[in-house]
Amino acid sequence: MRHVSHLTKLTWVEIKIFLREPMGAIGTVLIPVILFIVLARFFRGETRAPRFVSVDLPIFVVIFIVIGAVLSLTTIIAIYRESGILKRLKATPLSPLVILSTHVVVKLALTSVTLALMAVAGRRFYAGSPPPAPLSFFLGVILVSVSLLSMGFILASVVRTARFAQPIGSILLYSLVSISGLFFPVRDLPQGWQVVALASPITHGVDLLRGLWTGDGWASHWIAVLVLLANLAICSAISKRVFRWE
């Protein structure tokens, strides 16, 4: 029970702090939504909207989650470590797991807000654009988020300073996103890259969310679910071991 009250309080404080960042609320919530509306308006006149806009909204969401997970999380943890915040927290009864979970919860909360805003915006522009099974899709988003966030924790644990966190996170992020099946099908990739793409949890996240958005059941994407769960288990175990307080 102690941990729950710690988590609740710390999460609330962290959300407030985050919203005070000049780019916090704008960059994380407003820009994706505005981008979404602008794209939607741009393609509205077309009889057949490109697949990217009309169908692949979930993919856009995945990219957004990955950016949130890998970049901002890595940077936040690196800054916290570098400036001694983690060390200060270590000298309290606060559990390390609570600190880590807090940032996951904060990310998920902000992701949910953005998603909800997008859903509202999307309803205006496309008829029938909400998924047939919203709850199922929402659960999918949580699974994908948590799985990818656990990758972010490993990176955050290993990368020493915030200055390195950003470029290293970006390299990882953009290379994995580029082969995730978002821009072209994985089967069009060269053989070697297909292997990398299929090993990447991002690819499976794209697959699962794309399926859930269009009304598929979880069973038909069991491989993706399995990969995401395995990734979560492995990454959590590793990051717990290698996490550095200072």
């Binding site: 404080v13 702090i17 309290t92």
Partner: peptide, 16 residues
């Protein structure tokens, strides 16, 4: 930890 109070050298809190 409930019975001690700690001030660390060069510790920081969240900026905001």
């Amino acid at each position: 930890q409930n019975r001690i109070g700690v001030q660390l050298q060069e510790a920081q809190l969240q900026k905001r």
